[in-house]
């Protein structure tokens, strides 16, 4: 009976343990920004793709490929316009040099035009992407993004 109790007690911590989160291949490089208040200005959101990986650009060459896309929620005192994405770079897998892809690798910046009232602001959202390395592709992922900035 003591042994049974010990077993149960030991498992209690496991009951609500969440499943391990899938590994992200893109990181959001969070930087607090200061912008002009009450006029159209641009937030720059910097992302880093893990070395050895690439993600489809916002405009991949095939409609089967999953584009990189940012979605930001509304914030009080902030009007958000459509995000502006950088141009991708041409890439081909070594095993299929004829298939040209349009990708981001290393660092890329997504620009978000905003008009904000004076004061501190925070916008929450996510970046959706799908990454590959030189031999395999990983399921689509969403990366939480938290944009903190001040309008003066």
């Amino acid at each position: 009976m003591v042994f049974a109790l010990l077993l149960v007690a030991g498992q209690l911590g496991q009951l609500d343990a969440p499943a391990e989160a899938p590994k992200q291949r893109v990181t959001y490089v969070a930087e607090a920004q200061t912008v002009a208040a009450a006029k159209r200005t641009v937030l720059e959101l910097r992302f880093h793709v893990d070395s050895g990986f690439h993600v489809n650009s916002h405009t991949p060459k095939s409609d089967l490929q999953i584009p990189t896309a940012l979605a930001l929620g509304a914030g009080a005192g902030v009007k958000i316009a459509t995000a502006e994405y950088p141009a991708g770079k041409e890439f081909s897998f070594s095993f299929d040099p004829n298939e040209k892809l349009d990708v981001y690798s290393d660092d890329f910046v997504v620009k978000v035009p905003v008009v904000a009232t004076a004061g501190p602001h925070e916008l929450k959202g996510e970046l959706k992407y799908q990454a590959c390395d030189h031999a395999a592709c990983y399921p689509p992922r969403t990366l939480p993004v938290d944009v903190v900035f001040t309008a003066k």
């Binding site: 959001y28 969070a30 893990d50 070395s51 050895g52 939480p144 993004v145 938290d146």
Partner: peptide, 15 residues
């Protein structure tokens, strides 16, 4: 793990 983190990326290719 869910919180976006600043990264000092200095990865070299092929790591």
């Amino acid at each position: 793990a869910a919180i976006p983190k600043a990264t000092l990326s200095s990865d070299t290719a092929g790591s």
